[in-house]
Amino acid sequence: MKVLSLFIKRKKGGKVEKIEEGQLKEGHGLVSNVNGGGSREISIATLRVRKYLEDKSLKGICSYRFYENITIGGLNVEELKLGQRIIIGDTILEITSIGKKCFPECNLFISNNLCPLTKDVLFTKIIRGGFIKIGDRVNLMEPTDFIWVR
Rank of each mutant, 00 (worst) to 15 (best):
L53V: 09
R150E: 13
N139Y: 10
S32E: 15
L30P: 06
D136T: 03
E26H: 07
M1H: 10
M1T: 12
Y52E: 13
N113F: 13
I42A: 01
I134Q: 13
A45V: 10
C115N: 10
L24G: 04
L4E: 15
G14D: 09
N35D: 05
I134P: 08
R50F: 08
R40H: 01
G130P: 03
R150D: 11
L75C: 00
L24N: 05
Y67N: 10
V16L: 10
G14A: 07
E26A: 13
I134C: 07
I147Q: 15
I110H: 11
S39W: 00
G135Q: 15
C106L: 09
L53F: 08
F103E: 15
N76Y: 00
S39C: 05
I110A: 11
I95M: 08
N35L: 02
F131P: 01
N33K: 12
G14V: 03
N139D: 14
K101W: 14
T118S: 14
I8E: 01
V138Q: 08
N113Y: 12
V149R: 15
Q84K: 06
D55V: 05
K100H: 04
L30N: 00
K133Y: 06
G129Q: 10
E142G: 04
M1C: 11
E79P: 04
I132R: 02
R65D: 12
W148C: 09
K18R: 15
D145Y: 03
H28P: 05
G135E: 14
I110D: 13
G36S: 10
R48K: 14
K56Y: 05
G73Q: 14
L140K: 07
L30K: 00
V49G: 04
E68R: 02
I95A: 03
G89W: 00
K2Q: 14
N76A: 03
I126T: 06
I86A: 00
S39R: 08
S63Y: 09
V16D: 06
N107A: 14
C102A: 14
L82W: 01
L140V: 08
K11G: 04
H28I: 15
G29I: 02
T71I: 03
E78A: 13
F66A: 05
S39L: 09
P116A: 13
F66N: 04
R48I: 08
I44G: 06
T91G: 02
V149G: 12
G130L: 04
A45K: 07
L122Y: 01
P104R: 12
D120I: 05
D136Y: 00
R10G: 00
N69H: 11
R128I: 11
I92M: 04
G89H: 01
I95N: 03
G60A: 02
L108P: 04
I127A: 01
I8R: 00
L80G: 00
S63R: 07
E54R: 14
L4P: 12
K56L: 08
S57C: 11
M141Y: 05
G27P: 04
Q84G: 06
E17P: 03
I8N: 00
E21P: 03
W148S: 12
D145M: 11
S111W: 09
I70V: 14
E21H: 08
K2V: 12
L30G: 03
I61M: 11
L93D: 06
V121R: 01
K81D: 13
D120L: 05
K9A: 09
F146C: 07
L80E: 09
N139A: 13
F131E: 14
E41M: 00
F7H: 15
T46P: 05
S32P: 10
G135D: 15
G129D: 09
Q23E: 14
